[in-house]
Design a protein around this nucleic acid. Structure first.
Lengths: 271, 271
DNA sequence: TCTACGGCTTCCAGTAAGGGGAGAGTCAAC
DNA sequence: GTTGACTCTCCCCTTACTGGAAGCCGTAGA
């Protein structure tokens, strides 16, 4: 027969924890004095608590422990915890890798990579051939894209673009070409409509991406791509699809090139 | 200029989280409408949030992120997180190993291993030679130990044993012998006293142990030892010192052998 | 017998990072 | 004018406890 202080020393458990376990019904003292409220423990509770400690030490929650102590089969509980633990370890490794990556990078690097889940959406798309990468973008965003918008609006007056607007281009060719690059312009809309002219409506599947935000002129976008590729390579991912350039701020709403904002979205999967 | 719903879609962050970040001052919207309370975000906040997401994804707490965003050097913060992560991974591996150990064991095994930190203490100790392991224990606990108690009480009437009492034996020889085994009886007391006869006072250092509770006759204690050794071996520990048998319930307070309770304490260190 | 002190009690608050939901106000479309 | 979608604030809930305050209990010393 031990009072809580003694029992806590024997079991290497704080009195606070013992009171808590009493309160939640995980481990009741042998008896509680009716007048003083003093909890009285015996070695029976010591044995039970030992079991509880074992299960806590392997990371089970108190409710999981309850299930096990109730006499049901412990195997499913342990299997679940094992799966949890494995995914925790994978996640931890990945975080570690990302920290190393940052620590080894230059200190004033201005790119930051995040992982995001993109939901699926429906887009209209149009392929455009441009003579080379950088020079033509100005023309595309200023000239071609607004025209596409107009012709869409004329064809389908009820069509609505997604809010917030999601418009991007990809390079469907996959491999790099220096001249006559094919780019595909996409904008998310409310639903599928029949194709017309060379505008194609299609579904874009949800995917996991690495997102890098680039602030500044398009001529520097290559740096963001380089950073993204390095990040993906060194953090155990592989590119799963052609990257998207998501235009957030640009010539249409910001005068100065230095304010332009573009998100490079690289679809990836874990290696 | 985006309201919270739009902004949450753009940033893949829930509105709840955005309100929370506003509340705690981590990310304030560009402005809050004075009359409606509506939060208005801009792409500036999108960039900031992107950074916050990066740092959250590597597991930093919000306060750590605050430190980094305040412009101070991020390296110490990341180093700290890295160390944290490594110890988490080690702990996780160890839990995983323990779960595997349980899953691979027999289903109705009655031993449970816990890791505990034993505080240091002061004990008096006496070495006794017994002819063999099991047969003599009865005699030791019933005959010799009470006599030690008496002679201690006579020599030092003010001496106080620890509460709760902590008394154990060890096998200081280390290696196994079949005959004329040396056992050392120890009991924790309040402080050092001068040695007398063959009773030696000494300090016992704090240590980490694997604790196994054995219920039943001493003749079965070997099973507990076997379990402990297997556990230690398969979970990445090594034995660091001679094990202790801590007597909790025994002939002195329980009639039936089946009620006796003994804790096997194996000092260990992580490999 | 009085008192001091340590041990025990209950109750309340707080942790990290939000999630869930109620009740009420706002906005744009029909 | 009304509906439905959106937003606001406020409050409670999560885990496994820890810390502290106010008050009762038990024992040892003067």
């Amino acid at each position: 027969m031990f009072r809580i202080g003694e029992f806590s020393k024997m079991s290497k458990t704080t009195a606070k924890t013992l009171r808590y376990y009493d309160e939640i019904g995980l481990l009741k003292p042998e008896e509680t004095d009716q007048f003083t409220g003093y909890r009285i423990y015996t070695t029976d509770q010591l044995v039970q608590l030992h079991r509880i400690q074992e299960l806590r030490q392997i990371g089970l929650s108190i409710n999981e422990i309850r299930v096990i102590l109730s006499g049901r089969d412990y195997e499913p509980v342990l299997q679940k915890r094992k799966a949890e633990l494995i995914s925790m370890l994978v996640e931890g490794q990945s975080q570690l890798s990302r920290i190393e990556f940052i620590l080894q990078g230059e200190k004033d690097m201005n790119y930051f990579a995040t992982i995001k889940e993109l939901p699926g959406c429906i887009v209209y798309s149009k392929k455009i051939i441009i003579p080379n990468y950088d020079a033509a973008k100005q023309e595309v965003y200023f000239g071609i894209i607004p025209k596409i918008g107009e012709s869409i609006a004329k064809q389908y007056p009820v069509l609505k673009c997604a809010t917030p607007s999601y418009c991007f281009i990809t390079y469907p060719d996959g491999e790099h070409k220096d001249k006559d690059v094919v780019i595909e312009f996409c904008e998310a809309v409310d639903k599928l409509y029949p194709d017309f002219d060379d505008i194609v409506f299609k579904e874009v599947k949800p995917c996991t991406i690495v997102s890098i935000i680039h602030k500044g002129a398009y001529s520097d976008l290559a740096k963001a791509y380089a950073y993204a590729c390095k990040w993906i390579d060194e953090n155990g991912y592989v590119i799963a699809d052609s990257p998207r350039e998501n235009y957030i701020d640009g010539i249409w709403n910001k005068e100065s090139e230095t304010d332009w904002l573009t998100e490079v979205q690289m679809p990836v999967i874990k290696k």
